[in-house]
Design a protein around this nucleic acid. Sequence first.
RNA 1: CGGGGCGUAGCUCAGCCUGGUAGAGCGCUGGUCUCGGAGUCCAGAGGUCGCAGGUUCGAAUCCUGUCGCCCCGACCA
Length: 435
Amino acid sequence: MRLSSGFIPTLKETPNEAQIASHRLMLRAGLVRQTSAGIYAWLPLGLRVLRNIENIVREEQNGAGAQEILMPTIQPAELWRESGRYEDYGKEMLRIADRHGRDMLYGPTNEEMVTDLFRQSVKSYKELPQILYHIQWKFRDEVRPRFGVMRGREFLMKDAYSFDLDQDAAVISYRKMMLAYMRTFQRMGLKAIPMEAGTGPIGGDLSHEFIILAPTGESQVYFDAAFEEIDYLGAGSFSHDKPEDLARFFTEMTTHYAATDEKHDIARWDRVENKREGRGIEVGHIFYFGTKYTKSMGATVAGPDGKPVHPEMGSYGIGVSRLVGAVIEASHDDNGIIWPDSIAPFKAAILNLKVGDATCDALCEQLYAALGDNALYDDRNDRAGAKFAEADLMGHPWQIVVGPRGAAAGKVELKRRATGERVELTPEEALSRIG
RNA sequence: CGGGGCGUAGCUCAGCCUGGUAGAGCGCUGGUCUCGGAGUCCAGAGGUCGCAGGUUCGAAUCCUGUCGCCCCGACCA
């Protein structure tokens, strides 16, 4: 993308509604604009990040054996009356009526709908297990939306639902999802820690929330440093397909101490050898809740003995749009965002410090042609300082600085946003480092 | 849902108390000298002061209502 023609409206000053770093930076760098309280429009730069996160989530869900579907945002109230949650969910649920006066709602979550889909079509234990997920917009009419996309009313969530024949099988699904989550967050450059959690209105008795560490997080967290050592991605890590790996993984996740301040246990904490404390943001939550919905909604499959069985369910959420904010909270400095390579909107910015200078222009065009859609080319006729400042603000992992000084000698400067480190290289060397 | 605050130019804000012809900085447009960390100077465009009603000769300013947004607390991916 050429910055001169892109729709990336940046702001020099902080809009007064933005109090926390990620919200400020998302507005300033032109990622989103608010359209009403807790509801945002995603602009090109923000949407690219959202899509990148979505894709990592999708790859890891698929890798764990989950299948992607897409359920609607608008649901009939009827399903929720069946489960009994139509009344229970309260004012957070946005209720609407269609032209015939039928009660509808904008889905805050999809247990009922997925259970309905399941019961219509799955008739035998032989078809189990199933894990279905979708990545879809949700609406929860929060009393007080805040923190930009971290706590919006409309938000993009990945929610997965598992169906198993019995509890042992359900536990395996639960562990698979937990592993997928740890891999997902690691791929985004985040340190995530699973913590035992209350189950809230969703119900059930096995539940973990995933907290990522960020200095400006909402809650204080305490955890064993052992979590920092675990690699979920490399060779010798865990496999979704081996029950013994899943068991070993689950043991790792649940034996080391980790708690938010609400559940903090001083006595247990005292026995932790390598203590770590910090602030955290919840970015995911998984639940096992057994037959809560399959019973209330009458979903059964024929078991091995031919008798009907209510499948055991779990649900697994990741706040996709929240992650955009959460990553920024975890990774920024005074100058702006510092994107992890895996989700950056562009791998690199090409800064042409002297537009109109034949050598600079030619060098930049050459780099831009090589990088294509991976690069944001700052071809505006603007001062160098403005370009540096905006590139830092937008947080591209790499900046290729092309100025008249180096260009004459066939050199460009490659800057790493995260470290500030710069080196002078030939364009070819710079391109190969960016990879 | 309780408590507090704010709506004036695209953004950040002043003016309001004490009513009298709408302001600044940034951004934007044209020009100028500049040209490696948000440059200089000159000229310019841009606002029915959130909306509605009231008081008044006269309302951004005072009064009433209403809508929107933000912050603190309780609740949440």
